Amino acid sequence: MSGKLLKQIVDKLNILESNQDEFKEHFDKIDKKLDSIVEQVVKNSEDITRIKTDQHVLVTGQAKQDKILEALAMRSLEQETDIKELKRVK
């Protein structure tokens, strides 16, 4: 091999090595971004779970309050009927 050909091969290898280093840096940045995205997805998932739990508690509480209101409304109607009956008897 001639010195010129050998130099061309070495130059090409240096360029390839440089390109490989650039790709490595690029992939490292992508890995960091991916890690950040995965962390955010995990956080979002935990937040969604907490929100669903809170929603369930609220729905359960609302159903309980609805039953109480219904019972109070019935009691109020009964008391009104009793008052009217007492007024009528007087």
Rank of each mutant, 00 (worst) to 15 (best):
V42Q: 13
V42F: 10
V42S: 03
V42N: 13
V42A: 10
K43T: 12
N44R: 11
N44D: 09
N44W: 03
N44Y: 04
N44T: 06
S45W: 01
S45K: 01
S45Y: 03
S45N: 09
S45D: 07
S45E: 09
S45A: 10
S45M: 06
E46H: 03
D47A: 06
D47V: 08
I48T: 11
I48G: 03
I48C: 02
I48Y: 04
I48S: 11
T49P: 01
T49A: 11
T49F: 08
R50I: 05
R50W: 01
R50F: 01
R50D: 01
I51C: 04
I51L: 02
I51T: 04
I51K: 01
I51P: 00
K52Q: 09
K52N: 06
T53G: 14
D54Q: 02
D54I: 01
D54W: 05
Q55T: 12
Q55D: 09
Q55F: 06
Q55H: 05
H56N: 15
H56K: 15
H56I: 14
V57K: 07
V57P: 03
V57A: 13
V57C: 07
L58G: 07
L58W: 04
V59K: 14
V59F: 15
V59T: 15
T60Q: 09
T60V: 05
G61Y: 00
G61E: 07
G61F: 04
G61V: 00
G61W: 02
Q62L: 13
Q62G: 15
Q62H: 11
Q62V: 14
A63D: 12
K64Y: 02
K64R: 07
K64E: 04
K64L: 05
K64P: 01
Q65S: 06
Q65T: 10
Q65I: 07
Q65W: 10
Q65G: 02
D66H: 02
D66Y: 02
K67T: 08
K67I: 10
K67F: 07
K67Y: 08
K67W: 10
I68F: 04
I68R: 00
I68V: 08
I68D: 01
I68T: 00
L69F: 04
L69Q: 00
E70Q: 09
E70S: 08
E70G: 06
E70R: 03
A71V: 00
A71N: 00
A71Y: 00
A71L: 05
L72N: 11
L72V: 11
L72K: 12
A73E: 07
A73Q: 08
A73L: 03
A73W: 00
M74L: 08
M74A: 13
S76R: 10
S76P: 10
L77G: 07
L77Y: 15
L77E: 15
L77R: 14
L77N: 15
E78T: 13
Q79T: 13
Q79G: 07
Q79S: 13
E80V: 04
